[in-house]
Design a protein around this nucleic acid. Structure first.
Length: 312
DNA sequence: CCCCAGTCCTGCGGGC
DNA sequence: TGCCCGCAGGACTGGG
């Protein structure tokens, strides 16, 4: 599930398209529902055709492809979306379930590299044709199809990515601002960290990891946190996300997330609580990891290392 | 302000 | 062995 580290890794993986020009955009035919694109593809295509890419940025869990027209493409991978680059004469073919494979055009089933026998393009959602750079295509792949691609004018950007909808990026936010934005809330700290309007980029996996390392019980109401708690939460927000970026994100056993170079991430080997229900805590070695549900999402924590706040 | 349930979607794993 | 069901959750919406 792409959160900030995975999206940042994707951004770094495609940043070489800066300077390229968009030649066309198309959505491959598929047995699945078409990708959610706005404006509709025909209009989007007219607005981006011939434009040069001036930057590739990121806001929280969204990828931002800036164009010389002042418009920007916003790519939201959500649960299973991925971006890939295809080079000269190479098109991505996608193996069922997991791994994208690269093949020479016109040879659909003669694949380059290892590949399971069943190959399809069903989850290929959007292809952006490029010229003048190292890649000829930017490809958006998404198995569940919850991902979204939007073209926003400068004005729309201000609204859609503005402070009403998106808080400061989790890598940029200061300890003071994080505390200021949350400390009056009665919400559980775990739930609050997932609120993209408060701070952008933390998702379900990293929220559990952050709180375990900060030694804070996930159900603690924000307004019960002490100054030292905020310091630790902030330090771990940054520490965990930075380490995860260094390791190119987390590829869980479902294998869905891959870098733009089609490599798995490495942070899954450093997870201390996520998906480790019943296993011994790696911190204390005594207690076993517990799973609870908060706001309809799984939370994992160590009952010994993350004690609930006693009164006051 | 906050919370909850529902929605979108597909792949997978458990249970029978 | 096959089938059904529920689960996974990011972002959003509508109702309380």
């Amino acid at each position: 599930m792409p959160e900030l580290p995975e999206v940042e890794t994707m951004r770094r993986g495609i940043v070489a398209i800066v300077g390229s020009r968009i030649q066309g955009v198309w959505a491959p035919r598929s047995r699945f529902r078409p990708i959610t694109v706005s404006p509709p593809l025909s209009r989007l295509r007219r607005r981006v055709a011939g434009r040069a890419i001036t930057a590739v940025g990121r806001a929280g869990k969204r990828l931002l492809v800036e164009l010389d027209s002042g418009d920007r493409l916003v790519i939201e991978p959500r649960m299973t979306g991925r971006v890939l680059l295809a080079g000269q004469g190479i098109v991505p073919i996608l193996a069922t379930g997991t791994v994208p494979i690269f093949a020479k055009p016109g040879t659909d089933r003669r694949l380059v590299g290892d590949c399971p026998p069943e190959v399809d393009r069903a989850h290929l959602r959007l292809v952006i044709e490029l010229s003048g750079g190292p890649a000829t295509r930017l490809v958006f792949w998404d198995s569940r199809g919850l991902g979204v691609v939007r073209l926003l004018s400068a004005g729309e950007s201000a609204r859609e990515l503005g402070p009403e909808r998106l808080g400061p990026d989790a890598l940029e936010i200061s300890a003071e601002e994080l505390k200021e934005r949350l400390h009056k809330s009665r919400r559980a700290i775990k739930v609050a960290l997932l609120d993209q309007r408060a701070v952008a980029g933390v998702g379900n996996l990293y929220a559990s990891e952050i709180l375990h390392r900060a030694r804070l019980h996930p159900t603690t109401p924000c307004n019960r946190l002490r100054p030292g708690d905020w310091i630790r939460v902030h330090a771990q927000v940054q520490g965990v996300l930075r380490q995860a970026i260094e390791l190119q994100g987390s590829t869980l056993s479902d294998g869905t997330y891959r870098t733009a170079e089609n490599q798995p991430g490495g942070f899954q080997d450093w997870l201390r609580v996520y998906h480790r229900t019943g296993e011994p805590c790696l911190q204390c070695g005594k207690a076993r990891i517990v799973r609870i549900v908060q706001a309809q999402r799984s939370t994992f924590f160590c009952p010994a290392c993350q004690r609930p706040r006693s009164n006051k």
